[in-house]
Design a protein around this nucleic acid. Structure first.
Lengths: 222, 222
DNA sequence: ACCTGAACACCGTTCAAGT
DNA sequence: ACCTGAACACCGTTCAAGT
């Protein structure tokens, strides 16, 4: 309503803004989500950030859901793929850690990404890297397929839980007090020291090793 | 605006509606979410469903987030807890399957639940059951703590991925076609038969066994 | 071709008022 | 004590119009 809400560059810099593009919109969206979280991510705020009317964005994306789709692809394609020259075990470790690192770098968006089916071209390309590695490790078709799923379950759950452990996730509005926890649930309270973020890497590696060992990938040759 | 949008029971049945209560509101919310999904879950629609003004609900819950908190507690407390007389391995299987079944019965709400930290009294009580079982199985403190987390990662990822496999999860808006999948990603396409919902149980059991075996819980006695 | 601004049909939540 | 209805500050999206 007041003059301060008006944008000024219309006079100060008439034709200065570079034109909108998929890339500019997507990068701004990632910054906005990183700053304000998913609830704060609106097309209108995105427009403000880009220095245009919110509705201009619809000229480049059909809907907000299409923007989110593009962000999923963009982040999945950022996961670093280990060289095919490495042995299978090293490749699996590399893929797993690439996934976790991407999650950690995008804690506010990752939950959306992880609930998305990765059935775009980019998504399937990533999944295919995991599958290829399992096959290259010598697993036969059915076993590779099932272990692929098992590994994905583990990766997805670990990344989500670690993020919520970094306190970005929604907490109960009436959490149990530390005092009550120690009194009523001593075994949980007692384990607290192993639940701290500094322990995440070690715990994650333990689970990954158990799965790979169970899959027969960590043979005596190791 | 028109007469048809007005609610009629004000004349037809003056004092018929039973008063609002936490229970009535929560049960209606679960039905609404089950029917319309999370996006369709609004306080206003919930009011309509309960036959009251939306704003009456705020007399019983401080905010929409508090309703969701209550739903999390309600569903977690519905997970059936296996008898303490069973051996540890049977109890772990029972807890894991109780969790999965709850997820499957509430596919639209479960993603929210799973991203919530379970740090309410009800949530911790459930987590404590898992921890107690690991301790009772003879695992020492640190190992029990780490395997507890590993198991939770797996349970969470599996439940979420199975739900999205039942086609309730958001898909890419530009999914790869089956033809392209078969051509470009034959290994993924080839594994398709093992990704069908009928295969979920078997795949889940495989991963659970690998983890329990790795934890040393499936000894020669088994 | 690209962008704008008003408008529509929704949200969650606050508040003063009703019984 | 419990519920209401108007109001506020937001949403995503459509549409006709501007350059």
């Amino acid at each position: 309503m007041t003059a301060s809400t008006k944008k000024m560059p219309s006079k100060a810099s008439p034709t200065r803004r570079e034109p909108l593009s998929h890339e500019r919109i997507e990068l701004a969206a990632l910054v906005l989500i990183d700053m304000e979280g998913l609830e704060g991510f609106s097309v209108r705020k995105l427009g403000e950030m880009l220095g245009c009317e919110a509705m201009s964005i619809y000229h480049h994306f059909h809907s907000k859901a299409h923007i989110i789709d593009a962000l999923v692809d963009r982040l999945v394609s950022r996961v670093s793929i280990p060289s095919h020259d490495l042995d299978s075990v090293k490749r699996i470790r590399g893929l797993a850690n690439g996934w976790r690192n991407m999650a950690r770098q995008n804690p506010r968006f990752f939950p959306v990404l992880s609930l998305h089916r990765l059935n775009s071209e980019v998504g399937v390309t990533f999944l295919n890297e995991i599958m290829l590695t399992f096959r290259a490790a010598g697993l036969e078709r059915e076993r590779a397929a099932r272990l692929f799923r098992v590994m994905n379950y583990y990766l997805m759950g670990a990344a989500l839980d670690e993020i919520s452990g970094y306190a970005k996730g929604p907490s109960s509005l009436n959490p149990i007090s530390d005092g009550d926890l120690a009194l009523k649930f001593p075994d949980i309270a007692d384990a607290g020291e192993f639940f701290a973020p500094e322990q995440f890497d070690q715990t994650f590696e333990l689970g990954l090793d158990l799965l790979m060992e169970g899959a027969g990938l960590l043979g005596p040759a190791q």
